[in-house]
Amino acid sequence: MKTFVLGGGCFWCLDAVYQKTKGVSSVVSGYTGGHERDPDYYSVCSGTTGHAEVVAVTFDEEEVPAEIVLDMFFALHDPTTLNRQGYDVGTQYRSSMFYQTTEEKILFEEAIERNQSLWAHPIVTEVSRLPMFHVAEDIHQDYYGKFPEQGYCQVIINPKLAKARKYYSAWLNA
């Protein structure tokens, strides 16, 4: 099993897609990359903690290759916008990849290079060593699964799920 810690805007979006990805055994929403010892949703959303909203995606490489997990990441958010995804603005929404090993760092850098051709502007995704990972509050775990009719889920997450189904249907559960 391998775990990647990825930030691509609001963690609910990445969580929703990876929850439906074959070979993914768990997706944990959380915070990392900041200076506050015990961040919570409201402090992170204030933009003052330095943390990013992220997901820790644990998967079996025999069922879904690491490259597919990373390519999905780059397809599901705009990695060319600094500290912003749509209406979500601030460093907490930055495009980010947090590695735990040199091997992961290389995989992340290769994924950036591989996916750059899909974007007209340079990818600005931050690649950093993973500091402490803080698990987000229970309400944020599998948010889409709990609240699929909520407005944010309908307007923001559903189009991302549709895009994932279009390009990655072989890797998604129904």
Rank of each mutant, 00 (worst) to 15 (best):
I157F: 02
Y168H: 07
C153F: 10
P122V: 05
G90I: 05
A52D: 03
F73H: 07
V69G: 02
E149T: 15
Y87E: 05
R94M: 12
C10D: 13
F59D: 08
C13N: 09
S169D: 13
D88A: 08
E109T: 04
Y18C: 08
L161C: 09
Y41T: 04
S96L: 14
F73S: 08
N83T: 09
S128T: 12
L118G: 05
K105A: 11
N158G: 01
K160R: 14
H51L: 00
F108N: 02
T3E: 05
E62T: 15
C10S: 14
T32M: 02
F133T: 10
H134D: 03
Y143M: 05
I156H: 03
G90Q: 06
V44G: 03
Y87R: 09
V135P: 01
F4G: 12
G145Y: 08
F133E: 02
Q116S: 13
V127W: 03
E67Q: 12
I156N: 06
N115E: 07
P122K: 11
V24E: 06
E62Y: 11
Y41G: 01
A136S: 11
N115H: 06
K163L: 15
S43M: 00
P65D: 13
A120V: 13
K160Q: 04
C13R: 05
S26D: 14
V28N: 06
T91C: 08
H134S: 04
P39K: 00
F11I: 14
Y167V: 03
E126L: 14
L14D: 01
I123F: 09
Q154V: 15
Q92E: 12
K20T: 04
F74A: 09
L161M: 11
S128E: 14
Q150V: 04
P39M: 00
G151Y: 11
P65H: 05
R165N: 12
V17M: 08
P159N: 01
D38P: 00
I68Y: 01
I68P: 01
G50I: 01
G34K: 00
E104K: 14
L82Y: 12
K163T: 14
T49M: 00
D138S: 11
S43I: 02
A56C: 08
F98S: 03
K163W: 13
E67N: 06
T3S: 13
N158R: 15
F98V: 10
G47A: 03
A174Q: 13
A170F: 05
A170M: 08
T49H: 00
G33H: 06
Q141G: 10
Y42S: 04
Y144C: 11
D142C: 03
Y41I: 04
F74C: 08
K146G: 05
G7I: 06
F11R: 13
Y87P: 05
V135K: 09
E53V: 11
I157P: 03
G86F: 06
V55N: 15
E36F: 01
L76F: 09
R165L: 09
M97Y: 10
C45K: 02
E137I: 03
E63V: 03
G7W: 00
L172R: 02
N158K: 14
L70R: 01
E103T: 15
D60A: 10
N158I: 12
